[in-house]
Computed example of a mutant assay.
Amino acid sequence: MKNLNILYKKIEVFFFRKSTDSEFLSFFRIAVGLTILLHFLSILADFEKFFSSQSIVPQDIMNVFTPDWMITFPKVVGYFQALGISEYHVILFTKIAFISLCIFIITGFYSRISSFFLLLIQIILLKGSSFFVYGADFFTSMSLFYLILFPSDTHFSIRNFLFKRNNENINITPVKRLFQLHISIAYFFSGLDKVLGFNWWNGESIWKAIHLPYSNRDLNIDFSLLADHSYILIIIGWSTIIIEMLYPFFIWNIKTQRIWLLLTISMHLGIAIVLNLYYFSAIMIIWNMTNFYFEREQIRVQKKTTIPINRKLNPY
C-alpha cells in the first residue's frame, strides 16, 4: 500500500506539479504560426492548382477517396455557389482568413480561437485534397490542436498587453506532459516501424530517399561516392533507427537530454537539406525545442537559484 501511495504521488507530481515555465508557450505559438504562414505563402500562387475546381487532380477523382459525410473545400464552394457567391470569392476569402488567423496566432491575439478556426480551414482543405497530403500536414493539425489546449496567448502577446490578466493560477503542466509523451511515443514507433523491416538495415531506404525526384534539388550534392561505400548508408540508416527508438529513454534523462535533442535536431536538419522537406523538418524541430529545450533551461535556472540558499543553510 505504501508503494502504491509513493507511485501515485510521483504520477501526481509528474502530471500536475505547477510549473512557472512559460517561455516555451510563446516560442511554440510564434514558431508554429510563422512556419504555417510561410508554408501557406509558398503555395499561395498555386492554391487553385491544389484546391479549386481547376486542380491538377480533378475533384471527382479525389472525392472517390473521401467519405460523403466529410466537409471538404469543394463542398464548401458548392454551398456558397448555391447562395450566389462565386468560387473566386470563396477562394479569396479563404486565403485572407488563413493568413489573418496565422497573424493572430503569431501576435497572440486570441490564439486559441484563431487556432481553432485555422485548424478547421486546414482540415477542410486537406480532407478534400488527399492526393497532396503528407506527414507534415498531420503534424500541422496536431500543432494547432495543442495551441488550442495551451493558453499560449497569456504571455508575450497582444491579448495580454491589451487585457491584463492574472495568469499565475493557470497550470500548464498536464498539457505539456501530454505533448512530451506524444512526441516520445511518435518517435519510438517510427523507429520500431523501421527496425521491423530490412530496408533500413542495409541502407536501401536511405539510397532510395536521396534519389527521389524532389530530393537534393537545392544543393545538388553528388552522392555517387555512396555507391562504392555502402557502409555509410548502413550507418545512416541505423543511426536514424537508434535516435528514434531510444528517444523516449534518453530525452527524459537530464544527463543525456542535451545530446539526444542535438542528435534529433541534426537528423531533421539533414532531412531538410538532403530531402528538401523544409516544412516537415521545421515543425519537428519546433516540437523538440518546445518540449525539452526550455524544460532543461528551467531546471538550470532552478539550480542556480536553489544552490545559494542551500549553502546558507549548510555552509559545510
Rank of each mutant, 00 (worst) to 15 (best):
Y316T: 09
R112V: 08
I113K: 04
G203I: 08
L126V: 02
F116T: 03
I148D: 14
L277W: 05
Q302N: 15
N5D: 10
G108P: 01
I241F: 04
A82L: 13
I265H: 11
Y8V: 10
F117V: 12
S230A: 02
L246D: 07
R159N: 15
P151S: 05
L178K: 04
T140P: 05
F145C: 08
L83E: 08
K9C: 04
I56E: 14
I96D: 08
P213D: 12
I56P: 01
I271H: 07
Y88L: 06
A209R: 02
K194G: 04
V301W: 10
N166D: 15
I254K: 04
F294A: 07
I243C: 01
M245I: 09
T173I: 01
L44D: 08
V274T: 12
I105M: 09
A31W: 10
V57I: 15
L233D: 12
I206D: 15
D21W: 08
V13R: 15
D228M: 04
F50L: 06
I185Q: 09
G197K: 00
I85E: 10
I206G: 09
W207M: 15
A31R: 10
Y247H: 08
N288F: 01
L92Q: 11
P174S: 02
S130I: 14
T20D: 13
Q302W: 11
G33P: 05
L125C: 10
M284T: 09
V77W: 14
P174F: 02
A45H: 11
